[in-house]
């Protein structure tokens, strides 16, 4: 089977390309990756250089996004902040996806008591306002970006678990699963080799949307002062000083917020685009 005949090329890619919002989202995500990889070349100043003569200067040709209360270049800080957002987004979602997929597979494949117990845990976790839980745990730990990722991941797997469980339950009833059981495949092999590959596409969609959510959560935490600690720039903690100087320096609040908006928008558009392109039921527009 040549590349051109593959399902990916024939259906998915054609559908995806036809959706301008999805393409825009995908392009933005690529640009964001490029920005965080090339941050030292894009930033025109060091993000940490303090300049007492240029405190809270409005946007200018020299400082595109103005300067902050210590005279640091806001554009450079926003560019470096992109690294934090991507890192948090991907690691946190990675953790959530691994836990959620594992719980969903086990729960959906072995129904009965195991399923009941695991789903009650999901119900219980969903009762807590996630943001409260994250705040509670994070403040009892030392502030560190790794803890933030871990905690966002540990409080965000329930949606994936429910999704994977539902998929697994319908796949389990299919003939080819019965066939593999007949030729003596173990449960582990059936789950990993025959079911897992088929649940990956919905997981991909919710992971993409999850990156957006994790970035929002991280920025909210950093905004409250318990996320990424200064002087490391993150979009959320730039906004914290933006709040203190809102009367004199709108640029300090405006640009980091806009970056969050654009990033989250990009991942949401990409995620929805993948969903639509994967869904055979969505008619062509």
């Amino acid at each position: 089977m040549s590349y051109k005949d593959s399902y990916f090329h024939a259906v998915f890619w054609r559908q995806f390309k036809a959706n301008p919002l999805a393409v825009a989202g995908g392009a933005l995500v690529v640009i964001l990756f490029a920005v965080s990889l090339l941050a030292p070349f894009i930033a025109r100043h060091s993000p940490d250089t303090i300049n007492a003569w240029h405190v809270l200067a409005p946007p200018s040709w020299e400082h595109w996004f103005g300067t902050d209360e210590l005279g640091r270049d806001v554009f450079s800080r926003v560019v470096y902040g992109a690294r934090i957002s991507l890192k948090v987004g991907f690691v946190a979602v990675g953790i959530a996806v691994v836990i959620g997929t594992a719980v969903g597979l086990v729960s959906g494949y072995y129904n009965g008591l195991t399923d009941g117990a695991l789903m009650r845990i999901v119900d219980i976790m969903l009762c807590f306002p996630a943001f409260f839980l994250i705040l509670a745990v994070i403040t009892f730990l030392e502030p560190s970006i790794w803890y933030i990722m871990l905690v966002i991941g540990l409080t965000g797997w329930m949606g994936v678990a429910r999704l994977v469980r539902a998929e697994t339950m319908s796949i389990r009833e299919m003939d080819y699963i019965m066939a593999s059981r007949c030729i003596g495949c173990s449960d582990g092999r059936i789950i990993l080799r025959h079911i897992l590959p088929n649940v990956l596409s919905p997981v991909l969609v919710s992971a993409t949307l999850g990156v957006a959510g994790a970035i929002l959560t991280e920025s909210a935490l950093s905004f409250l002062g318990i996320g990424v600690q200064p002087p490391t720039p993150s979009w959320g903690n730039i906004l914290t000083s933006g709040k203190d100087y809102i009367e004199f320096a709108w640029w300090l609040s405006f640009f980091p917020g806009l970056s969050i908006l654009v990033t989250v928008l990009a991942y949401n558009l990409l995620g929805e685009g993948i969903r639509d392109a994967l869904d055979p039921k969505v008619e062509k527009r």
Binding site: S219, A220, G242, S253, I260, L261, N268
Partner: peptide, 18 residues
């Protein structure tokens, strides 16, 4: 709706405040 999804609440709060 997509833009609404992506707006961080604390940023909106700050902008409204400003």
């Amino acid at each position: 709706v997509f833009i609404g999804f992506a707006l961080p609440a604390f940023w909106v709060a700050l902008l409204l405040m400003y």
